[in-house]
């Protein structure tokens, strides 16, 4: 399912303080079935962008088109519910939304809200718990007895259970150990590849962006300053510095090596594997 934002402007209100233009005339098209990373310094409006795509914040100006559905100022509740059904949003630290006494009940919450019968919801729960890499014995456990990584996966299962076509994730790896992080991202890659799920991922971790995402969007002060392939993003290090973004380790190593040795490696290396290959290639010449 395609996402298309045209001229979207949004304000953000927290308590009595209103920050205008957290999103400033955003035009963005996210292709169906793509894996896009949204990066940018803190306060750039990444989370607000996610909320607009889910209909939690309505644009002041412009509109967001998700498949056939239009999110704009004054959109009716039916449309918003339909949007939320199609677009799953995994918040930062999603385990804080878990409330039910068993994992199964918590996972069923979404599907039941979207009109599934109790039976259907149970079938879905049994299905998605496997998709997040946990076995069915977890369904009867209390979510509060699980480890941090397991809770996170249960929370994500709760979103997946709504059967979205688009999955938005806001820092899904924050606070997890490296293994847990890789596991979540591998799951995302698999859903993207096997089910054609459109994935939009907000993250700070450039190594993860380099390894997992295909497209990158750079958001700075509510404006999109870059939208292209991940490889292009990391080609020009000077630009990244302007946006307060890091380089992936492999690319940083490559640039340093090229500077010190004067040898140019072929291509832009995003991961250790690519770097190793490039080094071998150069060594042979």
């Amino acid at each position: 399912m395609e996402i298309k934002l045209s001229g979207v402007t949004a304000d953000y209100q927290i308590g009595p303080i209103r920050s205008p233009l957290v999103l400033d005339h955003i035009n963005l098209t996210v292709a169906s079935g793509s894996f896009t990373a949204v990066v940018g310094p803190t306060g750039a409006g990444k989370s607000s962008l996610m909320k607009v795509l889910n209909g939690l914040i309505l644009p002041e100006e412009g509109q967001a088109v998700i498949g056939q559905l239009v999110v704009r100022k004054g959109a009716d509740k039916k449309t918003l519910k339909a949007v939320r059904k199609r677009v799953g949003l995994v918040f930062q630290f999603p385990e804080s939304q878990i409330f039910a006494e068993t994992v199964e009940k918590d996972i069923c919450f979404g599907p039941l809200n979207f009109g599934a019968t109790a039976e259907e919801a149970c079938t879905i729960a049994a299905d998605v718990i496997g998709q997040v890499g946990l076995d069915r014995t977890f369904l009867s456990k209390s979510p509060f007895s699980l480890s941090g990584g397991q809770k996170r996966r249960v929370a994500i299962a709760g979103i997946l259970a709504c059967r979205p076509d688009i999955l938005l994730l806001d820092e899904p790896c924050a606070g997890l150990d490296p293994d847990g992080q890789s596991e979540i991202l591998n799951l995302l890659t698999r859903w993207n590849r096997d089910y054609g799920m459109t994935i939009v991922l907000v993250t700070h971790d450039m190594d993860r962006v380099a390894r997992y995402a295909q497209q990158a969007v750079v958001l700075v002060k509510g404006k999109i300053v870059f939208h292209d392939s991940v490889r292009r993003l990391f080609t020009d290090p000077a630009r990244l510095k302007d946006w307060d973004l890091d380089l992936p380790e492999a690319r940083r190593f490559q640039l340093k090596l090229e500077k010190h040795s004067g040898v140019a490696l072929p291509g832009v290396c995003l991961t250790e594997e690519e770097l190793a290959e490039a080094l071998i290639k150069v060594g042979r010449v």
Binding site: G15, K77, R84, G88, S96, Q97, G158
Partner: peptide, 21 residues
Amino acid sequence: IPNLLDETQKIMDAQRARGAV
């Protein structure tokens, strides 16, 4: 108090995203 209010807002948003009205 502000933390609690902000957190309430966040959890409400999260449950809304799961179709709660």
